[in-house]
Amino acid sequence: MRKLKSNELIDQFNKIRELKIVRGEYKNNTPYYRVTGTVNNRHIDQRFKEQSRAKAFIEELKNKEEAKRSGLKSVKTKLSQEQIDDATAAFNRIPKGTYLTEVINFYLTHKPQEDKQISEAYKLFIKDKKRIGNQTRSINEYEYTLKKFIKTHGYRLCSNITKDDVTKFITKGNVGRITQNNRQRIYNSFFNYCSKQEWITKNPIANYQRNKIVTKTADYFKTEEVHTILRYALKDHHITLLPYITLAMMCGIRRCEIEKLDWSKIEFNENETTIHIDAEIAKPDSRRSFTPERIAIELLAYCNKHNLIKPYPKNFAKRFRKFKNDTGLHYSKNKFRHTFGTYFYAMCQNADTTAFVMGNSPSVLKEYYNGLSTKSNAEKFFNFNLF
């Protein structure tokens, strides 16, 4: 007899039967896999959500037919013939020396409480993140990172997703180690949510090894360059950028926070000036208020007096590009904020205080700014006289 194909079996009449797997879609565009054929003069027509389950069904039929042809009907038992066939097929698949009751107990312990498609789980995940008050920025990050995975695997059950399925999307494209770690964080959050809902028994990437990141030294402006920047910012054709530069370089506020900061959150009093960063715009989702240094207070007061009250002016990118060209200095990402962090930490020599003002953690702050500048250079930075 010729070798059987993967979708063929021999029935109890010793005839080769072929079963076909055809992909189709329901009206709601959800895919299914249909198994059709005839075995023992009985028509087979079954639908499955995944191709792997359709193939497993054919494999199970093969084992049952083999059991029927093995002549086990003479065994005295209360089981029906169908149950005997099913048990025989199961014994043929389990490792040698393993009892069937062990397999059943393991299954009952680890079986998800509910089957849920990835696409459904994703919608509920995003809905829950909105319910608990995650910021729009965070929601957008979840949606952007997961959308291609959902498009590819949305029809599959959460319980059938493997580590390899997820890893391909974490490492996809020519992206750096930090980006991969950020993706892993989001996928980990999603599958932890699925686990809590008991749609899966274990997060498929629970043991995923994150990339080791070697923190680079922060790039910051030297005091002479800071003076150049401030002199150019006070010129008429660049004056609209002065509020942004002051808040970023002299106060250490993040660009994404400055974009949403309302000028009314800068409180001007006779004795002191206070900047309030509300939790709604703060990156760590935690409110902070602090009093800036003298040079920053003077610059903010100048902006307030001359009605320069838009921290992030219209056509910012175009204005800032011209400003960079005019100053002739090298600008890197977050260089204004890194400049403040470098000098403020060197001046106060207190990681907790610096971390609070910048809305950061002391450990991260030390990695970036520890030992970059001296206290004397920091005093030059904050005691510069403009007016």
Rank of each mutant, 00 (worst) to 15 (best):
Y220E: 12
E59C: 05
S373W: 00
R177V: 14
T171W: 09
N181Y: 12
T274Q: 11
P243Y: 06
F106R: 15
F91D: 07
I297Y: 03
N134Q: 09
L124E: 15
L365H: 00
K305A: 12
T246H: 13
S332Y: 01
K62F: 00
K3A: 06
I58G: 11
Y122P: 09
N41A: 03
V214S: 13
N315W: 00
P243R: 09
F320E: 09
Y155I: 09
K235M: 10
T228F: 01
L124H: 11
S6P: 07
L72C: 12
V226H: 03
H43V: 09
N350F: 15
I170Y: 08
D128H: 13
F149E: 01
R177D: 12
E198R: 10
F344I: 04
S189A: 06
M1Q: 00
G154Q: 04
A279H: 09
D262Y: 04
A89D: 01
K15F: 09
R254P: 03
Y33G: 14
F290D: 12
I200N: 05
I277Q: 01
Q197Y: 02
A90I: 13
G133N: 00
I186S: 08
I178H: 09
S195H: 15
N385Q: 10
T162E: 13
E65M: 12
L79N: 11
E120V: 10
H153P: 04
N41M: 03
V22G: 03
Y369H: 10
Q184S: 01
K168G: 08
P112V: 05
Y208R: 12
E114F: 14
I10Y: 09
N370S: 07
D165R: 11
D278F: 04
E379M: 13
K62H: 05
I186A: 02
L308A: 03
Q46D: 05
E280D: 06
P362T: 08
G359M: 07
I253V: 11
S189K: 00
N325P: 07
F356T: 05
T167K: 12
L242Q: 02
R156S: 08
L157C: 07
Y33M: 10
T374L: 02
V357G: 05
E143P: 06
Y312A: 00
F382W: 03
I21R: 14
S189R: 02
L4T: 14
R23I: 11
K20Y: 15
T217R: 14
R288Y: 02
V22C: 05
I118V: 14
R17L: 06
R294N: 05
I84D: 05
M358Y: 04
S119L: 08
A67Y: 04
P284M: 06
Q209A: 15
G176E: 13
Q135Y: 01
K15Y: 14
M250N: 04
V39N: 08
